[in-house]
Design a protein around this nucleic acid. Structure first.
Lengths: 246, 246
DNA sequence: CCGATCCATCCTGTATACAGAAGCATGGCT
DNA sequence: AGCCATGCTTCTGTATACAGGATGGATCGG
């Protein structure tokens, strides 16, 4: 039993380490400021220190962990302001993606796909009985992915992807929480209206409008943030929000 | 001679590997698409494979290298559009930093320091005889660093720092090239005027103006890009521009 | 009873060993 | 002569060994 011939096949050890540690951190199994011992982690995840080490380094790059001056890693403590900034930053970057899409010629094929997603979201939101949140999350995620691709800038797309590694900056972060909040329907109707307006602005080559709309769309998450942080039970439904202290 | 008791003291092996490989790549010692062998690198830099490996992983995160599907790393090939996007992206992010600085209360102490830098830059640019480019680069870099800090958002500051890891997105990237171009003085006068306007906008809490100014300021590099790419000898003065193909 | 110092333990950074996979060239076959 | 199979070489991914330094606790002194 030296190397990768373990029972679980498929992913590399490093990937397993990455996913495993992410899970531990975002689930709140290790609190902010707490030290992550490589040895303990390697035992806990059944890996050697090498892939653990690689994963820790990457998570530091992602902004989830911090390196102590004396060596070793700790979980980064996020403030409420950090979360707000991350969300606003996503708005700024998605705004730029929308503007790029409007200014350059957005790929017609992708725009067509965009309309398909819009229609699907319409149908989900309009559903009179209980909404299919799982489907909403899928299509909403796809909408945003497509928007990023529509920018036509690989550099920008990478940067957005990076910011969304912070789980509370993810477009779907608050949707599950919303599902347990009173004014769900209204909130998602607004979001969907913004989705449509955004695509419309892109098609009309109205870059400034597209940018402003994308920013405002992200701010929807910001208003949800306040509500969620008031309610301990809701906090748990938003991945990574357990790390917020203060 | 097992470990870190090498003659050169100070930095860790990993840092040496990082700097060394960055140097090799940005100097054009390895061309775009070329494969980087860990063994060869470890020989070349006099390190073991472990720190080399860590450095390669980080450089991939920075967007300088790419991982091959079969494993191993290659130098990423940048197009001219990639460079333009990176510069524009810096403009967007610094624009956000400027807006934040204007919207939130910018730290008065730092604002004071900002004025000191502005004055220094004024003196350098106004110098009738040959300009001190080295000093200009220092103060210009300091201006931008302070701007990023003035935003008051650590999340944003980190993101900006990341984008500037692409050397051609660095605020000073084209200054050395400019020093060999005809209309130097004029160009730097414009830049300095934008610096002043930017600080003025922040102090007056004019967020939108501050944002627009920072974006336009970054675009100054964009106009230089075209000029530089025409001239083979100038290309060499801008770090990392050797990676641009097409 | 509190604080500082010293010692033992643990932990990280680095080097190296090892195995499976990929790339490559040679040689055989059609 | 061209193409495919095959064996070798070289590589990366992973595990482990080792050493210097940090951390924490117990003991001694005030």
């Amino acid at each position: 039993m030296t190397a990768p011939t373990r029972g679980d096949r498929g992913q590399s050890q490093t990937l397993k380490a990455l996913l495993g540690i992410r899970e531990l951190v975002f689930a709140g199994a290790v609190g902010p400021g707490e030290r992550l011992s490589e040895v303990i982690l390697s035992h806990r995840l059944g890996l050697s220190r090498t892939p653990i080490r690689a994963a820790l380094a990457q998570l530091e790059q992602e902004g989830v962990l911090e390196t102590m001056p004396s060596g070793g890693h700790t979980v980064r403590a996020f403030t409420q302001a950090d979360v707000a900034d991350a969300i606003e930053l996503r708005g700024v970057l998605e705004g730029t993606a929308a503007r790029f899409a409007a200014e350059r010629d957005a790929d017609p094929v992708r725009l067509q796909a965009m309309h398909g997603i819009l229609d699907a979201l319409d149908r989900i939101v309009a559903e009179p009985r209980k909404m299919d949140f799982s489907a909403y999350i899928d299509f909403n995620g796809e909408f945003h992915n497509l928007l990023h691709a529509l920018s036509g800038s690989e550099t920008l797309r990478r940067e957005i992807e990076r910011v969304m590694k912070l789980p509370f900056a993810w477009p779907n972060a608050f949707v599950t929480a919303q599902s347990q909040m009173p004014e769900v329907r209204a909130s998602l109707v607004v979001a969907q209206s913004q989705h449509r307006a955004l695509v419309d602005a892109i098609e009309r080559r109205e870059g400034t409008r597209a940018e402003a709309l994308a920013r405002e769309h992200a701010r929807l998450a910001l208003t949800n943030l306040d509500v969620v942080l008031e309610d301990r039970t809701l906090v748990r439904t938003v991945p990574g929000l357990a790390l917020v202290s203060g």
